[in-house]
């Protein structure tokens, strides 16, 4: 062959390339297949079973979550714990890592307790993992991801800690820790505020076909894990059997967390409001259970369609104007 490759070498290289291509396609397809096969998962949190682990100092799910995720908790650079200019404050939970009665960057689930009609109700709280998560849709840095399992996860390497996700979350779930993250490398006093942290549905365990730590640790089997569609059906069957109520299926356009209760959630929320609201406003890290929460992203769908139609309208108008102009030129030419 003229380019210095003989027939034998050509066949050898072609065969190698062929094998490499087949391997790449096969392995690539397998990875893609495994990812796509990881269908939407969900949990039912049965409030008729959860007792908040009355006999334990800390509820088992909270301890298990903390243990499982300890390596993901923020490691703070103390020198960078400075107010967010021009604000006089900054958010630091690093001195209170042991707090377990609210959500913090070091505590991604907690069990709230309310008394309704003389009955104590224990409510495990964490990220609901919304279907069309507002935090994900509105993050200005694309730092929030949704996995095939339905887990909504914050990428701590991309998050600037602006806390917009907490503002747009109907339950204000993500919590901010200052002195950590990408913002510390740019202009920490002036831009950014840290990193937002929240439950990631133990997404690494889900990828390995395992269950989240809160599920496996619950001594009362109050948290049921499974395929989302099956659990959705199941939670309504259970609600029907006990003449109870479901929270989380419709709220914010749908989530992967279905709460089951014998007591209406309006009543639970009324109590939560009383104990989780201070004169300054809602207490951070202690979410309410507002009924019928609308997904704010649904309200912009019409506007998104208008923006999608606008280019077509522009092209049609351009065609009309150009043809009129060209016709005018032709007339002048006559």
């Amino acid at each position: 062959m003229s380019n210095g490759i003989n027939r034998r070498e050509f066949l050898k290289r072609s065969t190698a390339a062929g094998i490499a291509s087949v391997l790449t396609l096969t392995v690539g397809n397998e990875i893609a297949k495994a990812e796509s096969e990881l269908s939407n998962k969900a949990t039912i949190i049965d409030l008729t079973k959860c007792d908040g682990c009355v006999n334990l100092g800390t509820p088992a799910c909270v301890t298990a979550c903390s243990k499982k995720n300890s390596d993901k908790f923020p490691v703070v650079n103390e020198e960078l714990l400075k107010p967010y200019w021009p604000q006089p404050k900054f958010e630091d939970h690093s001195k209170n890592k042991d707090i377990t009665d609210r959500l913090t960057p070091y505590n991604w689930t907690f069990v709230d307790k309310v008394e309704v009609d003389g009955e104590i109700i224990s409510i495990p709280r964490r990220c609901m993992h919304c279907d069309n998560a507002t935090c994900l849709g509105m993050c200005p840095f694309g730092a929030i991801e949704k996995e095939n399992s339905g887990a909504v996860c914050i990428n701590d390497e991309l998050c600037f800690g602006g806390a917009k996700c907490r503002d747009v979350c109907p339950w204000s779930i993500p919590q901010r820790q200052a002195g950590v993250g990408i913002y510390t490398k740019i202009a920490p006093e002036y831009i950014g505020g840290g990193v937002m942290y929240k439950c990631d549905f133990c997404s690494d365990l889900l990828k390995n076909g395992q269950k989240p730590a809160c599920v496996t640790s619950c001594p009362k089997n109050a948290i049921i894990f499974g395929e989302k569609e099956e659990l959705r059906k199941k939670v309504y069957e259970l609600a029907k059997e006990m003449n109870g109520f479901v929270y989380g299926d419709k709220e914010n356009g749908g989530t992967s967390t279905f709460y089951l209760s014998k007591i209406p959630f309006e009543k639970i929320n009324d109590q939560l409001k009383k104990q989780n609201t201070s004169p300054e406003g809602p207490i951070m890290g202690r979410p309410l259970m507002e009924p019928e929460i609308e997904n704010k992203l649904d309200t912009v769908t019409g506007m998104a369609i208008s923006a999608a139609i606008a280019p077509i309208a522009g092209i049609i108008t351009a065609g009309y104007v150009a043809s009129k102009r060209l016709k005018g030129e032709k007339t002048d030419g006559k």
Partner: peptide, 27 residues
């Protein structure tokens, strides 16, 4: 959410003008 509404509304106008501009001069 107000800012998102305003962003989408302005984006619709921008898209109209941009595509009009490109195509009217192309035609």
């Amino acid at each position: 959410i107000n800012m998102l509404y305003l962003h989408y509304l302005s984006a619709a106008f921008l898209c109209f003008f941009v595509f009009y501009h490109l195509f009217v001069h192309y035609f």
